[in-house]
Design a protein around this nucleic acid. Structure first.
Lengths: 115, 115
DNA sequence: TCAATATATGAACAATCATTCATATATTAA
DNA sequence: TTAATATATGAATGATTGTTCATATATTGA
C-alpha cells in the first residue's frame, strides 16, 4: 500500500503505511499539527455543528453559548487547516465543513473512545 | 447507525453518528482529549515506532534522540489514555501499542494530510 | 547488603494557546 | 455618507503543556 502524496509543505513524497517504515519527520510533524486542531473541545463542537448545518458565525456563537470573537478566532484556525470553507451572503458569512473527510476523522475518534 | 457505548467516564450512553444530533457535551470533550494526545509530534513518533516494534524506554529515547525522562513522561500520557501497554522483563520495560485501532486513527489522519 | 542499570516522577521554566476586550473592516439600508 | 450589523483581528492574560534537572523506585548481579 504505497501512495504518492502532496504534503502540506508542497512537495511530493511516498509514504508507506505498512509496518517497518517510519514516515518522514516532517510528515509526522504535520500529522501532529492536524490532530492538535481537533484537540480542542470548542473546535470539535464547531465541526459537529457544521456537520449538521451550514452556519453563520453568530449562529455558532449562540449555539455554543460563546462570544462571537472566540468563535471567529477558532474558525480562523479551522480555516487555516482547511477543515472548513465559507461563503458570504450579505453581511453574513456561512461556514461549512470543507469535505466529508473531516467528519470521517471525527467518527474514527468517536469509535475509539466508545470502545 | 446507533451504538451503545461506554465513555471514559464510565457510564453508558447512546451516540448517533448521523447528521442531526450533536453528541453530548462530555463526549465531545473526551474526543478532544483523545486528539490532544495525538497532537504532539513526540507522541506521534513514539506511536509509529511502536507500530514497528515493541520497544523499551531507552530504545525509544535513542531512536528519537531524546532524554529517557522526556520519553517516560510522554509514555505516561499514552498509558493514561490506554494507547500503549507494557510488560516488564527484568529491569527493562517494553512498550507496545494497545491495539490496532490506534494505528487506524493515525492512518486516517495521514490520509487526510496526504490528500 | 551494595553497586549498577532501567524507569518513573515532582518541581521549575519556557513556550504555546484559548479567551477576552477593544477596535478594525465590510456590507447593507437609509 | 452615516448608522447599524456581522465578522475579523491584535494585544493582553491566565491556563496548559513539553522538556529538563534532580531524585526516587525497582530489579539484578556480586
Amino acid at each position: 500500500m504505497t501512495k504518492a502524496i502532496h504534503s502540506h509543505h508542497g512537495h511530493e513524497e511516498t509514504v508507506q503505511l505498512t509496518r517497518g517504515l517510519m514516515p518522514k519527520e516532517e510528515l509526522l510533524y504535520d500529522l501532529a499539527e492536524l490532530y492538535k486542531v481537533f484537540g480542542d473541545s470548542t473546535r470539535i463542537k464547531i465541526l459537529f455543528a457544521l456537520y449538521e448545518n451550514e452556519m453563520c458565525v453568530c449562529g455558532i456563537a449562540e449555539l455554543l453559548n460563546m462570544t462571537q470573537s472566540a468563535i471567529s478566532h477558532q474558525l480562523k484556525v479551522l480555516r487555516q487547516n482547511k477543515l472548513v470553507k465559507f461563503r458570504r451572503e450579505g453581511k453574513t458569512i456561512f461556514y461549512s465543513l470543507s469535505d466529508d473527510h473531516v467528519f470521517k476523522i471525527l467518527g474514527q475518534g468517536l469509535e475509539h473512545i466508545t470502545e
